[in-house]
Amino acid sequence: MTNESLTFIFLNAALINNFVLSAFLGICPFLGVSGKLKTSIPMGAAVTFVMFISSLFAYGINQALIAIGAPYLRLISYIVVIASAVQLVEMFVKKFSPVLYRALGIYLPLITTNCAILGLALFQTSKGYNFVQSISYSLGAGVGFTLALVIMAGIRETLELSDIPGIAKGTAIALMIAGILSMAFMGFAGLGG
């Protein structure tokens, strides 16, 4: 498993096993922030950044924990690293773009509880990726998340102008669309060979 090429790892995380649409990670922000195209891109970028940072640290922490023989501390250490990375991003966004900070609202601190990020750290550990492979994996996952978020936001913006039956408004119709998108992404399975 560990001799996969970097391109394959990237494509695998971004398209074939898209984090949102086929591994069901990060559904909360996917449904919550995908209302507007304008906020979906910065949100995707923020998540990608946190993923990148936490992937780097998760790799180091895992090595250290194996060295001292305490793998049961893995979960707790990962979550602390992720929470700190999110705090960093939050301070950064607040300082440089207060407008964006307000637009993202509660979903920015909630990146901490975005399972895509913890999931990424856990998957890269269980797959036994080395340092460079982990970086490629985290970037692929980030791109995949952003892609799904942007596509969804585009569809939902159009949807607002169309006539939806009352009972389907909101989450129900969003889930149906996600289902169709997920089926569309299954088409990428061929890329894996």
Binding site: T171, A172, L175, M176, G179, S182, M186
Partner: peptide, 13 residues
């Protein structure tokens, strides 16, 4: 498959 999960939850909602 993943698609089905979205459909079933959507239908329940």
């Amino acid at each position: 498959l993943p698609g089905g999960a979205f459909f079933v939850l959507g239908a329940w909602l």
